[in-house]
Design a protein around this nucleic acid. Structure first.
Lengths: 182, 182
DNA sequence: GATCCCATGTAATCGGTTACATGATTCC
DNA sequence: GGAATCATGTAACCGATTACATGGGATC
């Protein structure tokens, strides 16, 4: 059994008030970016498909002067589909590929100095990431706490912060080990 | 700039003593499985390609009775290519997609009991994973500590253990929050 | 005048998985 | 006799990214 999660991501976002393909991309880039990303090349064909399957409806507005906009709305069938997916059991979690670890795995073919430099750079990237998460969290706390979704959004951010913190600590300790051994 | 990391994974594994496509798969399943996986549908065509590009050579053995085996060896050009990749700077790290967080993000459309059940199941999966890491670590410590690569392999396992531990703690705390609020 | 934001979409391409096909050997 | 392991490979398919194409409105 193989489910296309991106379909459900879009289905879910249509419940948050987003209506157009453009708005969907905006929300994903703003709020799901730490664990889900998506491109227009996926969004527009998927929306079309959802309508074909009766999970959503379109409402096209041809405005005077302004470019056309297509607003999408979930049908009750679409809502049902979303709920069905939410309650479906967890599938086997795919292993996330990690370029950093792949390089480290073969790093005996390289001077430790280079490896340390590499890990330090990674550590900086992670620190930036952590900072971004904290900014997003502040935005949600001050602007969207009335939103019914906010609680769950904060849970996902908490996840990101904790995992990233663990990664940063690992970088720190691994660099130390490499310095001690070289 | 977009590099195909899988090519380099195979290039790297050819330095560890693995020679055949089958052995490469074995090693990946045994030692890189927590951050990199690969299928035969990728291995065999890639090996072929590496030979075409002069990064490896083949040595085919047609044995009496036994099926053919093809042994691959890195050329000096291949070794150089590997070292070049190792020292190349980190690319923008792709966001790993997370199905669990995606569902949680939309979980206000579901009873908290269901969400808790879901997170508990995830926690179990993570615990199993952690146990597997510890087993692999013991295997490396008792059997391969003479291996020059062992140190780096242990670093990647340490990463897996730390991140997984952080995830488990997050599960625990998130379940508590949901129970308190329902 | 340039740049950015809003807004929609398609075609080529790529990386990867899955299913299929084949066949010998060894162990239970 | 059947299952597991060793061993190699291909074709269909899928999810996703990238580059391209278009064009109005607002701001600097």
């Amino acid at each position: 059994m193989k489910t296309n999660h991106t379909r459900y991501a879009i289905l879910g976002i249509l419940t948050t008030g987003c209506r157009t393909g453009y708005q969907i991309k905006q929300l994903i880039d703003k709020s799901l970016n730490h664990f889900w990303k998506i491109s227009y090349g996926q969004i527009y064909p998927t929306l079309k498909q959802l309508v074909e399957e009766g999970l959503a409806t379109v409402q096209q507005t041809t405005q005077d002067g302004k470019p056309d906009t297509k607003e999408y709305f979930l049908t009750s069938k679409g809502e049902e589909e979303l709920r069905k997916w939410l309650s479906s059991p967890l599938e086997t979690i795919p292993v996330p590929r990690n370029e950093v670890l792949l390089k480290l795995f073969f790093s005996r073919h390289q001077h430790n100095d280079k490896t340390i430099e590499y890990l330090s750079h990674y550590q900086e990237v992670l620190n930036d990431r952590l900072y971004t998460y904290e900014e997003i969290e502040q935005t949600i706390r001050t602007h969207s706490l009335d939103n019914e979704d906010a609680q769950y959004w904060l849970f996902t951010l908490d996840y990101g912060k904790r995992v990233t913190t663990a990664e940063i600590e690992w970088c720190y300790d691994t660099i130390n080990k490499l310095e001690g051994g070289s």
